[in-house]
Design a binder for these strands. Sequence first.
DNA 1: AAACAGGTAGACCGTTCTGTCTATTCTTGG
DNA 2: CCAAGAATAGACAGAACGGTCTACCTGTTT
Lengths: 189, 189
Amino acid sequence: MPASRRQDLLETAARLFAEHGFQAVGIDRILKEAGVAKMTLYKHFASKDDLIREALQFSDQAWQHAFWSAVADRADTPAGRLLAVFDELAAWHISDDYRGCVFMHAASEHLETASPAHSVACDHHQAVRSKLIEMADEAGAADPEALGASLALLFEGANACAQLCRTDNPAKQARDAAATLLRAAELLV
Amino acid sequence: MPASRRQDLLETAARLFAEHGFQAVGIDRILKEAGVAKMTLYKHFASKDDLIREALQFSDQAWQHAFWSAVADRADTPAGRLLAVFDELAAWHISDDYRGCVFMHAASEHLETASPAHSVACDHHQAVRSKLIEMADEAGAADPEALGASLALLFEGANACAQLCRTDNPAKQARDAAATLLRAAELLV
DNA sequence: AAACAGGTAGACCGTTCTGTCTATTCTTGG
DNA sequence: CCAAGAATAGACAGAACGGTCTACCTGTTT
């Protein structure tokens, strides 16, 4: 009993786009792997670009939920959670199917800022950044905006480096740097 | 008196790839803008992938030279140069034609680690990282590897964020975070 | 002058891709 | 049981792309 054709398409498209890229995956491949007919796709989505936009939003929702709840499970104190972000990042980076941040890929394949894919990538990044600022605030940072922004830079930097080397070294180094920043903000002993 | 058809092709291809992406730019467009015939391209390069690889290597050489010499012109002391890296980054990010790091774009459009484009992107990143470690060493860091790696994370993170928001805020925030790291390493008062 | 190397223009081929259309089959509510 | 909506398979059109090929031109060297 399949949930719905629309959901099948979103899940399959999100998986294939993350694995191979957006331009590299054709409509026909998505249809074949989802087991859905072409006309059904074009009943639910106006175009491939529209499917890309919705698949990215779907990926964002799934990622935000999975990532932040995994972080919350790793630590009890606010400052500990800020470090746990990078532990979870390291775990993510050494998973077999890690190929980099799909939202950065979307932005790199759609360089025009007006493109929907670029917008969704911005939204994703803003959500990460806001969450880190919120966590910095809960940890009692004197300037949560600045600390959160710095941690967001380390976060995105680790993502970029891990995409290239495919190890968890960047995330571990980011954790060390984050610890230094937390100590400088007197949130860590 | 044009330098050489080969060089025309490399420069035009590098410019178009950086501006619009690799898959988005067709052979015909490069030929038209470079004013070169198709057969000439295929005399100098085996395929489009080969052209991409060589154009990336050309871009890398040009960027490394321009960036590090601009950094050297900004500061006299080793520690000052480490901060000047992020000032130069900020200047780069607000230039009109900044669309993100073309080497990350290459890695994002060629997700297979075996791809030549991925290799060149890795080489570029390693060169940046090595340069930062070398500068951290010259500045007298106790652990230049760790400091250089942390600064490289901030560098790549600022690149990623600037690609999304197209401002120099990420580079400025990265500079602040870098200053904190330098103070923690007792290289800055 | 003649031979030669390198470049040009543009037609051409096979493939791939998005998106449309038709005719048929499946499912489900009343 | 049957009618209506939804989904299916697959052909098809139109365009773009990478890459090959032929015929022609131009400048240099011997």
